[in-house]
Design a protein around this nucleic acid. Sequence first.
DNA 1: TGAATTGTTATCGT
DNA 2: AACGATAACAATTC
Length: 309
Amino acid sequence: MPELPEVETIVRTCRPLLEGRQIRAFASSWPKGVLPSVPAVRRALVGQTITRLTRRGKFIVFYLDAGFLLVHLRMSGRFEWADPLRAREGATNTPLPPREGAGGGSNRRRLNPLPTLPLPGGGESVDARRPPAHVRATWDLDDGQRLLFCDARKFGRIIFTRDLPAATAGLGPEPLERAFTPAVLANLLRTRRRQLKPLLLDQSVLAGLGNIYTDEALFRAGLHPAAKSDRLTDAQVRNLHESIRNVLREAIRRHGTTIDWIYPGGWMQKHLRVYGRTGEPCRNCQTPIVALRLAQRGTHICPRCQPLR
DNA sequence: TGAATTGTTATCGT
DNA sequence: AACGATAACAATTC
C-alpha cells in the first residue's frame, strides 16, 4: 500500500538505475492496466530515453524524450529488477538503501541465473532465486537490465501521456513542497465542510496521503478524524500542517512502512503511533488505541488525545 | 472461508 | 445543483 513516502523511496532507489537509460522493449499481457493500450504504449516507449524519474502524489513519473509515463502502484504494485549483470557479480554492490535494526544479514544474494532485486531495500524474507510472481509489464533497458512491474491484485496503472499537466490535473498540491503553506491548507479545509480523514485521503484535495499517514498525521495534530474541516482554529490548522509534513519527512527518512509482503525495506512501522496499534497503549497517555471505521476505512485513534470536540 | 485491503468512480441523499 | 457521504469494485492473501 505505497503512499507518498514509499513511492518517494522507490523513485530515489530507481533513479540512478533508470535516468539516462534507453528503453529497448516494452511488453505487457495486461490490457486493462496499460493505457491507452499496450501497443500504443509500446510504440511510444521503444527507443525513448528516460531523462528524469520523479514523483507526483503517488504516481511515479518517467520523463521521456517525448512524453511521460505514469505508474500508479495502487494497493499491491511493485517494481523488481531482473539484472543479468548484477547476477554475475553476485549482487554485492547494489545501490540499495541501508537498513536499520533487524533483518540484517541477508542483503547479499547468491549467484543464480536470473535473480531479481526487490525494491527498495531488499525484503527480509524475499528469496531472490524465486522468479517474481504476477509480472504485468517489463521494460528492457539498453544496459541489459530489465525492470518488472508486478501487481498481484491488478489495481495498478501504467499510463502514457504527452500532456503531463493534463494527466495530473486532478491532483491536489504536494504536501512537501514550499508552496504548501499553512494558509494553503487552511483554504483546502475551510472551503469544504467534510470530515478531516476522508478529506485528507482525497487525492484531488492533497496528493500523496493514504490510510497510514492520514491516521498518523491526525494523531500528531490531536485531531479526531471525523472532525469537520471548516471548524478548525488557526492553531489547529498550523498544527495539522506541521504534522502532515513531519510524518511524511520522517517516513521518507525511514524508507517508508513495511507491514506486509507488498513493500519491503522500510522501517517506519516501528515508529507508527496509532496505525495498526489497536489495543496498545497510546505513546502519550497510555490510553488503549481504538479502531473505528470511517469512510469505509480502518481508522486508528487515541480517544483521549483526539477528542471529537 | 470470507474478511480485509486502497483508490477511484458511480450513485444516493441533502 | 453542487457537494458530501456511501457503496461497489478491482483481485488476491491469510
